[in-house]
Design a protein around this nucleic acid. Structure first.
Lengths: 392, 392
DNA sequence: TTGTATGCGTTATCAC
DNA sequence: GTGATAACGCATACAA
């Protein structure tokens, strides 16, 4: 004769009834001073009491309607091969009828996969980053992944806060483009240790061991600088971002290489770091114009500042490109609108986003996929802001 | 002597042991032909067997470490008043030590709130919508909500697919800006019936009963048109979007009102619907220029087309604003860069996004908050593209 | 082929 | 003040 065994001490002799709790028989083990109930009783009362909790159709509703078990329904809807065609058809038909939608939360809790990616990006005001995001979103949604976004507003603190906000098991992977301010990376390293796949793009740090997606920073800078040299420029000012950024470093490197190739002397006075604000751009340009040998070209590593430069030069009645050539980097839409139109290097922002998402998705889907860094090829776009007849 | 009761028939006499399954005692009710096990046994073996499943610290881990129950830990971490200070401190300290992070999935499953908003927006390539999204994201994140984005790419089918993809219980509310193509709204109505809070913004449909956030469509169009009239223009071509869009209708209405006010005859030939493509804009402008009495102004309801118009007129060597004034609507960044700079109506895209998010969040947080439509005030920005000396 | 039980990690309810 | 456990909705190992 089976008896109830105390779950603590495993004995049956010491167990006695101890009243009814919520309509369930409750037991008590004298030996361990331990109260407990039996599972099945509660199952039963649950099934009887629940009409329908949240209003949504659940597997249980379908199971009851069809007259099968929840697991059968689950398997049928997932096209499990074990389930007979007949049952599948019946279940799917009822599911449709009841407008069943799986509860992704419950699924995720079980499968430990949310089909959601997080993106942290400096801002969305500019087409530049927005287009990257656009690429990310398109690729992700094609692969059946949602995209959660956060803007760091180029603030380190916000970036850190964003990471934390995203990290509550709600995302399967993270895409990262650092804020201008960010120069420490513990907030990412922590998450990396937790095992979440991360890919950095555009503004990356090699200090963090993740795959990265770059644009052609150095090569692009070489192409732009060489082009300006070929246009006859010899005093090329370069407008960089904050010095700690890798894009600043690598583009400066490219600039140097091009000058060296043409044996043009380097002049530290021609290198300026700006924070991309109008004020800082104007002041750098001012400095350059007042040098003993003033600039005959400005190469800005952002189109935004290049446009600001053109506008400023025009305001000063300095002719572009005749007196000063201007070139940007990035290929934003504004470059086509400014007059003269802007020579720039198309980094292909949309493609950067797409490649980044693909890289991350590959890592997520194919755990042991080799994930190496990717460099997105760009190309030089020569427009009027640098086209000038050579002073032979 | 307590005995195991069959969960089906509630009898105890018919129950007998039926072997050990996965280390648990299994029972069998002869009467119902029903096999079952007892709950507590499995609990016990679980606790012994599981080391740690996903690697993440859970409440159970903390409970074990501190020597209290899971419920106590949960309450302590939620600052429940019942828990003693001492216990709270102990639990929180261990929680920190174990780097505990609550599993938002599990929380959401129980609380039925994901703290996530979905946004469906036509695109992200243009600053226009990206800035709205930016506003939405800022407000949401301040309120502790995540934002999931989808672009419809101005395709109705994609818009519909997006809704479905977002709707798996993963979001608490939905923000909607329709695609250009969309003119049926069943996909939203279905979701509305399910009880999910929705707010439409910018491109809205009154056919769907949700709160809406508008910009000053009619009033803005009145202001722009009046301004052009005051500049001496009498033949003002208006460049609308697809005719089914409410923004087309309302802005046309404003245009008419302004003309009427100044007793300027309406000419249907001066009203054009375009799909915002370069080609369609050029062709409309061409038509207007070849009228018997050609246009002396173009009012485009999008800045993008206004810029295209200016560029085209310049290409045709038609002077802006001397021969033809141009005005846009929206205030995109490009309007400041084009030459002459574009007169436009600032609809304040960022603010539209913010107001939209606030409206939705209010509805979510405050179930019975009255949620009425909101119109975001904008203002006319007069720039060179319309400033001309009056022909008195 | 189908059903049963269990677990995912949390909150809420009730008992003590 | 604390503990036990049901429940959220689903997937799945195992039993039948």
């Amino acid at each position: 004769m089976p008896r109830v065994v105390c779950p603590r001490c495993e004995k049956a002799e010491t167990v006695q009834k101890s009243g009814i709790v919520r309509k369930k028989q409750r037991f008590y083990c004298k030996d361990c001073n331990y109260h407990f109930t039996i599972y099945h009783e509660s199952i039963k009362s649950r099934k009887k009491q629940k009409p329908n909790s949240g209003g949504q159709t659940s597997l249980l509703d379908i199971a009851k309607a069809v007259g099968v078990s929840v697991s059968t329904v689950s398997r049928a809807l997932n096209n499990h091969p074990d389930i007979s065609e007949k049952t599948k058809v019946a279940i799917k038909s009822i599911a449709k009828e009841l407008a069943y939608e799986p509860n992704a939360l419950a699924q995720s809790l079980v499968t430990r996969s949310t089909h959601t990616l997080g993106v942290i990006i400096p801002n969305l005001h500019t087409t530049f980053f927005a287009t990257m995001l656009s690429g990310i979103q398109h690729v992700s949604s094609q692969a059946g992944y949602r995209v959660v976004i956060c803007q760091s507003d180029d603030l380190h603190q916000t970036e850190v806060a964003n990471v934390q906000a995203l990290m509550n098991n709600m995302i399967d992977g993270l895409l990262f483009c650092h804020s201008l301010e960010t120069s420490t990376f513990d907030h990412i390293k922590i998450q990396l240790r937790r095992g979440i796949p991360i890919v950095q793009f555009y503004r990356v740090s090699l200090e963090v061991e993740t795959p990265c997606v770059f644009c052609e920073d150095e090569n692009g800078a070489i192409q732009v600088t060489e082009h300006l040299i070929e246009m006859g420029c010899r005093r090329i000012g370069i407008l960089l971002g904050p010095p700690h950024l890798m894009i600043s470093k690598k583009r400066l490197e490219g600039y140097y290489k091009a000058l060296n190739k043409f044996k043009i002397p380097l002049d530290p006075k021609l290198v300026a770091n700006v924070d991309f604000s109008t004020k800082s751009v104007h002041s750098s340009v001012d400095n350059w114009l007042h040098l003993d040998v003033p600039v005959d070209a400005v190469f800005s590593i952002s189109d935004k500042s290049a446009v600001q430069t053109i506008q400023y030069l025009k305001k000063l009645h300095i002719k572009v490109p005749d007196t000063v050539c201007v070139a940007g980097f990035g290929n934003e839409y504004t470059g086509e609108i400014i007059e003269p139109q802007l020579t720039t290097f198309d980094v292909r922002t949309g493609l950067i986003g797409e490649k980044t998402a693909k890289l991350l998705l590959n890592r997520i889907i194919d755990q042991n996929s080799t994930s190496e860094n990717v460099t997105v090829k760009g190309h030089l776009i020569v427009r009027d802001s640098s086209k000038r007849v050579q002073h032979l």
